[in-house]
Every structure is written in structure tokens, then in C-alpha cells.
Design a protein around this nucleic acid. Sequence first.
DNA 1: AAAAATACTGAATATATGTACAGTATAATA
DNA 2: TATTATACTGTACATATATTCAGTATTTTT
Lengths: 205, 205
Amino acid sequence: MKEITSQQQRVLDCIQIYLNKTGFPPTRADICKELGFKSPNSAETHLRALEKKGFISIESGASRGISIINNQEYPIDDNEYPVIGLVAAGSPTLAEENVERTINCPNSFFESDFDYFLKVKGLSMKDAGIMEDDLIAVKKTTDVKNGDIVIARLDDEVTVKFFKRKSPKIVELEPANEEFQNIVINLEQDELYIEGKSVGLLRKN
Amino acid sequence: MKEITSQQQRVLDCIQIYLNKTGFPPTRADICKELGFKSPNSAETHLRALEKKGFISIESGASRGISIINNQEYPIDDNEYPVIGLVAAGSPTLAEENVERTINCPNSFFESDFDYFLKVKGLSMKDAGIMEDDLIAVKKTTDVKNGDIVIARLDDEVTVKFFKRKSPKIVELEPANEEFQNIVINLEQDELYIEGKSVGLLRKN
DNA sequence: AAAAATACTGAATATATGTACAGTATAATA
DNA sequence: TATTATACTGTACATATATTCAGTATTTTT
């Protein structure tokens, strides 16, 4: 699946909205009307691009012969994602006793797929707009880059910080709050386990 | 809803099966082919009967303009919520030209129901954890309390601030960033329109 | 620097499609 | 008994629609 452009996304959304509203797909002219194009060929070329990239299929010759291809990882685009609150020392993050509740959320809700929500404690990342009780969408991965907001485990405590690799053996975990100190980790002495990284945030107020 | 005949049921089933298979409704000719009719008018009359009895609706003039009317078996808990970006001065917020795209999201995602996502510009609310390009879930209402994060319209500009009523005629819009000034509004002189209030926040990174 | 992809306008056209009209026949209803 | 609904065939046609061709311009990739 190649990358979709913003205009192509608009066309794809337009098709979905039209489908929800009417129960059948739009014509080229309908898409033009919805999105302000003046030539049916504008819609046509976008449709062909979306087809080429695998987002839709087009039945040749058939009117309104557009169908959206649902090629998600899971057949259903919805999932119950666990919300992880306080993590008991030493216990695996996703252990049942750590799951406060679940949230139903489309799989493709954030840019990347993700595995769980982590409920934030404290204000160490407040200048990055991460406040107490915010829910961070966490993708489980150890593949993190400088500047990523990572969920790290240090001495059986889970912490959320910016990731900065200073040298092959020195990693700094940097808060976004001047009242907090950088955490410097010498990988030869201390154990650092990267749980994953933040791919999004959810706040309910 | 009148009683359906066995042939009409076959036609209705045929429409549903065709929809499941292709993603769009059949033409009269398609129905004929599936059910062995030799005249498109056979399908037509059945469709008109189904329409009259309330099982389907037919969009006049539109090809494949058939939609099956759902007897509300399951209320769908999903919706496409518009994302509002830059709002042109003087235009209604939800006008089509302001809708950047839509996000599929459960209706009960935040504590309260909501109407659209507003894409945040600027950092005037950064100390409340609201950063540039964050998406605020906005519930359209004028019923706001002190301390609520409101979406307000002032001189055809949309702004997000804390709401503080100082007296019956004085309202203050308070930013969460020391680099910004409070906005004091005398309701007798200035026009203040409350679009709604924030019921949640969404960040994709 | 050339080629390909994106993002359009505008016009033209073959055909896909809804729909009306003319029939035939049977069963249900008033 | 007359009327209406059901259940078809068959023809015809206006128009709804997909799709091609000819341009222009910008951005991205090779």
C-alpha cells in the first residue's frame, strides 16, 4: 500500500461519506460537486490513483462501481484497546491486573497502529502537552529514534520521556518540564528496557 | 410496513447479496440476470413495490440508486466526524470548505457527545497541554461554565481559551500561556459568540 | 535534466441505466 | 363484478455515467 496524498484522502473520505449518506457510491460528477472540482476527469484521475494504490476497486463500465477496499490488519476496523494505569513493579505492563478498562477505537486511528493506552502520571512531559491522566497511545517497539517520546522501564518503574542517544552506550531520557532532571543511563551499568513509543494522545475532559 | 411477497423478498435478498459482494447496489439488469427475469421492467416493478412498502428507497434518476432501509437493528456507534482546520472569516464553522477531512470515531468516545474536531493553531493554550495541530473534540453548546475550555468567535476569528465570567456583563477569555494576554470582553460593547466547548483532545504523532 | 506523479480544466462520446409505454395473465380485494 | 396488486415479456428512448483525449501547471522522483 503506497502512501496516500491529502487530496486522494479527501476523495476517499468523500466516497465513504457519500456511501454512509446514500447507501451507494458516488459518480465522478458527485465527487466533483462535493469537492468543488469542475471536471469529471479530476475525480477520475484521483479514483485511478486510489485504485492503483489499492484503496478502492473500480468495476469497469459499471456506474457507481466504486468499492472501498478494507485491507486492515484486522477484519474489523474497531478494537478494544486496554488502558494501562499504574504498573506494579516487576509485572508485565499488559498483565491483566494493570488493565483499568478498555476503549473502543478504530485500528487506524493514529498514524501508526498501536497496542495500548497508557494513563499518564505526573507532569514530567507537560511542555510536550502531556498532562496528568492523559492517555498515550503506545506502539510496542524497541525501534526508537532520537526525539521520540518513549515509554521506558527503569528499575521496574515505567516512565515517559524524550529519547536521546548520546553515544553507543549512553542514553538520556529527557523530560519536558524544567523542574525535572534528565535521566542519564549508562547501558553497561544500568538496565533500560524500551516498552514502546508514543504514536498519539487522547484526553477526555 | 406492509407484508412482503416471496418474489419481493427474493429481489430484496438479491440486492443485499449484490451489495455484500460488490459494495454497490445492482441495476435493474443485474437483478434480472440474478433472478432470471427477461425484462428490466420485471425488476423495476418489484423495486417500486418494495419502495412503496418501505423496504428500500430509490433515488430518482440515479443509477444504482437503491438503498435498503435499515430497520434499526443495531444502532451504529460509529460516525465520521469532520476535522475543521482554518476557519475563513465570516464563514460558518462547519461549512464544507472548512472541513479538512473526517475521522471515524465511536460516538461515545469522550465523556460527552461531540460534533466536530477543531485543529488547533498556535500555542496560546500550551500550559493546558493543548499544542499546535492537536485536535480538540468540540461539543456545540453555549452552556459553558467557568473553567471550561471554550471555542469562541471574536471578530470573525476562532479562538480556544478558558472561559471566566467576571460579572454579568464581563467575560474573560484566559489563555494558558504567560506570553499571551487575557481577552476581556464587555458584552455590551463587543460581540462574543461561544461556538462550543472542548470535551476532549486527540493528538497524532 | 528528464521522467513520472499529482492536480487540475474542458470537451466529446459510447454506453450503461432508469423509466415510460404497450401488452398478457393470475390472484387478491372491495 | 370491477378494481387493484402481483408477476411477468418486450421495445424504446432520454439521460446518467464512465471514460478517453487534449491541454496546463506544479511537484516529486529518477
